[in-house]
Nucleic acid binder design. Sequence first.
DNA 1: CACCATAACCGCACTCAGTGCAGTTCTGCA
DNA 2: TGCAGAACTGCACTGAGTGCGGTTATGGTG
Lengths: 231, 231
Amino acid sequence: MLVRVGCRTLGRVSLRDRKRARVRQALVDAAAELFERDGYDETTIADIAAAADIGTRTFFSYFASKEELLFPEGDARVRAAIEAIASRGPDDGPAEVLLRALRKVGDDGDDLTSRLAALRLRLIRTVPVVRGRALQLQFDAQREIAGHLASAFPERLDRVSAAALTGAFVGAVTSALQVLLDDPDQIGDPAEVRAAVHRATDVALTPWLRASGGPWTEASGANRPPSPPPP
Amino acid sequence: MLVRVGCRTLGRVSLRDRKRARVRQALVDAAAELFERDGYDETTIADIAAAADIGTRTFFSYFASKEELLFPEGDARVRAAIEAIASRGPDDGPAEVLLRALRKVGDDGDDLTSRLAALRLRLIRTVPVVRGRALQLQFDAQREIAGHLASAFPERLDRVSAAALTGAFVGAVTSALQVLLDDPDQIGDPAEVRAAVHRATDVALTPWLRASGGPWTEASGANRPPSPPPP
DNA sequence: CACCATAACCGCACTCAGTGCAGTTCTGCA
DNA sequence: TGCAGAACTGCACTGAGTGCGGTTATGGTG
């Protein structure tokens, strides 16, 4: 059976759908509880289902696997990024738009404070299968965003360049975050993390920002971005 | 039991080790054969072990899982990149070094012509668990390379910036390559794949090439790389 | 050559993830 | 009220992966 996501009667949320959403949330909560208490590998799907008062078999009509419990809002960030691209100003270049989209995604982290998000970060670093799933979701998101970016700048970016640009941005931010979050001293101060990410992305993406100033023809020693690497 | 990799008697390769290497290769070959004939999900580990004339249980002393069969030379590319970093010239900056390292990794694809490599590319696009594993390996490789890059330029890159730079490069090339390989016309011809890799690296790394031509001062309309986006 | 420590091999039994099937219950709607 | 369809659930099954214990083969040593 496929996992339902929307409601059938568009104007009204039916009892069925409300019940379903409640059970779904109960599963996520129970999983978070058990993952924190017993560990990811030690928690079985049967445990989670029992804690949410459903049969083991029924679990699989809500989530396709144990990892999915950690990413219940899969494409929310993607939608935010796409919206940021859609609401671009007339003078913005591809890099500016993408930068703003990613900053919005990163800053909209009500995420970073929630218990599930913290647990997710820890399990991504700890459990290989979770990391694999996270990377896969990120990769799919990149693809989606790159497509919209190419559509937004049809005369300045072909599909390959848009993908490269998006991949560079996301890769820079992700890698910087990985190093920062592995340092056990940085944790607990979101402002520090954010500042370090900004600095690192400036270093990594300086060429892209310069290139997006004009259509890749003019010299641009003048509008150099704020943080070149130290001499 | 842990999977053995080296030989004990350093000067000589013992019979035991030669036998072990032979069985290991037989497993990879049998797996490639069966994956191509029956598909990845349809092939069980028991099938592969039987085709290589070993017991099902013994398989797990050679590979930890079915995915690992597709990445038998896990860190060869990483070592190539690290070597490229180590053999840098005195005037090279971080971007040049990283650029050369990635080009070398892409070109050293004796890989790209082999049957296993083509199969791997197809399965990465097709089978989610394989894609997840590939991304995870790539992520670990990035981390390793970034560490060496930071060590090579201790006064110009901190660890976070090195990670961001590496992530940007690898992310750009990977994303560009993904778009190129998803076009269904390229498939089936190793030369086409190689051309796609070149084009992907060109497009993805062009901004850094322009930026690294001089110390960010001169115009670079002259040495423009072959594939800028269409006007 | 004989011996022994060790590593590899392998069957067996087990747990858990995930799926197909069939029977039952519940919900929305006419 | 009744009905069509969706959801819930148990059962049986396959396959991945692990732990254990017994057996065999190898390599080094006296």
